[in-house]
Design a protein around this nucleic acid. Structure first.
Length: 403
RNA sequence: GGGUCGGUGGCAGAGUGGUCAAAUGCAUCAGACUGUAAAUCUGACGCCGCAAGGCUUCGGGGGUUCGACUCCCUCCCGGCCCA
């Protein structure tokens, strides 16, 4: 049994950094964490999309601290809750099929393993809630439902909103908070971590834990990080940095965050000490170049997920290809026979969605071969082009191999 | 069960017999500019075609018409009101 550590600094980090709120209170949780008692904590992730993103990374990082402190940590995949899908603002989600769910979660453990350890002497446990939820009988479900009132469930603002706007609200959607809450009951956990958007569900679970187990379940909600387009990042929307992205992509996506996300990005997505972040905030206010600081942020984000050497390489890649507009070191090869029209080649190389798309890019002046701008979509690939670089847009590169 | 309104491109949302491959916004892509893959500006944005043009699209199917996203029938799905 791993020993529980009561390192106050680490505990405080857990209680403060990236935290939106703690229920019932920060003080109560601190007391518990400093007591040396081993806690059982989980965070659930619904496999509604194939990638975990940096938003999840924030929660996973919190789990990592708890793992370090010696607590029992569970990474729960909501493969059963995903079928229902956490209700959205205005539309009922499609019920996902088992196959879709399996496909989505296939890489999750691996993606999460970049941040937490599923082996070692205090391994994080990987669980799926289908283990207990799929076994519930109607009787169990009735019992579960009898513990809450409709009024309580309808407190959830998006349920309210849907009723107000006359958007459909299906019965099973109301069950979602109960299902999620039941996870905590089934695993008999002492704490749940989740995004601030999960507050209602988690608090509902708190009530259920009390009711079923007579147990106080602590809840920590994470601050939400906004994606570049201003929409809160979520795996459903498919935007934001994914944990499965290449380090270069992560760096680039981070660089495309608006300037005013630099501070929140540093706080939520990196391990840069808060004192240092405060300093950077001041520098920004007195007119420091945001680009340099954003590069620092991007570097730190990649570093947290992939480690320092990889982050270093990603930064170099960015400076080289984006800032200096040079060709990257590693470029994929596309092989083609002599005489292929350039437009076709671009589409085949996957640098455009279709032939029409490729031609569009050519017309708009976004295509070069060997540094020469291509203006005619029908220009044919010639023998001399063997080994030259095909460049499409700012970041599409291929080495042409002429057959 | 009755009445009524609705189902449009990745999303949101106009359109209501030809001028519709379908306004607009978001997202996306290309270009310019720049301190960045930020911001801003310009342009593109179904597919095939150098083009002319063709083809496929507005919940599904059928019909009317020279011509339908627009009208009719039918089916499926949803909202609201009444029962």
């Amino acid at each position: 049994m791993p020993k529980v550590i009561t390192d106050e600094k680490l505990v405080d980090e857990f209680l403060e950094r990236g935290v939106e709120a703690i229920y019932p209170s920060k003080e109560a949780l601190k007391k518990k964490l400093m007591s040396g008692e081993r806690m059982k904590i989980y965070q659930g992730f619904d496999p509604t999309g194939p990638y975990l993103h940096v938003g999840h990374a924030m929660g996973i990082r919190a789990l990592r601290i708890l793992q370090k402190l010696g607590h029992e940590v569970i990474f729960l995949v909501g493969d059963y809750t995903a079928k229902v899908g956490d209700p959205d603002k205005d539309t009922t989600r499609e019920m996902l099929t088992d196959e879709q769910i399996e496909k989505n979660m296939a890489g999750w453990k691996e993606q999460a393993a970049q941040l937490i350890d599923f082996s070692g002497d205090n391994p994080v446990r990987f669980e799926r809630n289908n283990k207990w939820l799929s076994k519930m009988t109607l009787g169990d479900i009735l019992k579960l439902m009898s513990r809450v009132t409709i009024q309580q469930i309808l407190q959830r603002d998006l349920f309210k909103k849907r009723l107000e706007t006359d958007d459909p609200l299906k019965f099973h959607e109301l069950l979602y908070p109960l299902m999620q809450g039941y996870d905590g009951v089934a695993m008999e956990v002492d704490m749940e971590i989740g995004g601030a958007d999960q507050t209602f569900n988690m608090l509902c679970g708190r009530d259920l834990s009390k009711s079923y187990l007579g147990k106080e379940k602590f809840v920590r909600t994470n601050k939400m990080m906004d994606a570049p387009d201003g929409i809160t990042m979520s795996k459903t929307k498919g935007n934001g940095i994914n944990l499965a992205d290449s380090s270069e992509d992560m760096f680039g996506k981070a660089m495309s965050y608006p300037d005013d996300h630099i501070i929140s990005g540093l706080e939520l997505l990196t391990e840069v000490p808060m004192e240092e972040i405060k300093k950077i905030e001041k520098e920004l206010k007195v007119g420091a170049n945001p680009m340099e600081l954003k590069k620092f942020m991007a570097f730190e984000i990649v570093k947290m997920i992939k480690g320092e050497p990889v982050a270093e390489a990603a930064r170099e890649h960015f400076v080289k290809t984006v800032q200096k507009k040079e060709t990257p070191d590693e470029v994929d090869v596309v092989s083609t026979p002599v005489g292929t029209p350039v437009g076709t080649l671009i589409a085949e190389a996957g640098l455009a969605e279709s032939n029409a798309g490729a031609k569009r890019k050519i017309k708009q002046g976004g295509v070069e071969i060997g540094g020469e701008k291509i203006t005619d979509a029908n220009a044919k690939i010639a023998k001399e082009m063997d080994g030259q670089i095909l460049k499409v847009g700012k970041r599409g590169f291929r080495i042409i191999q002429v057959r």
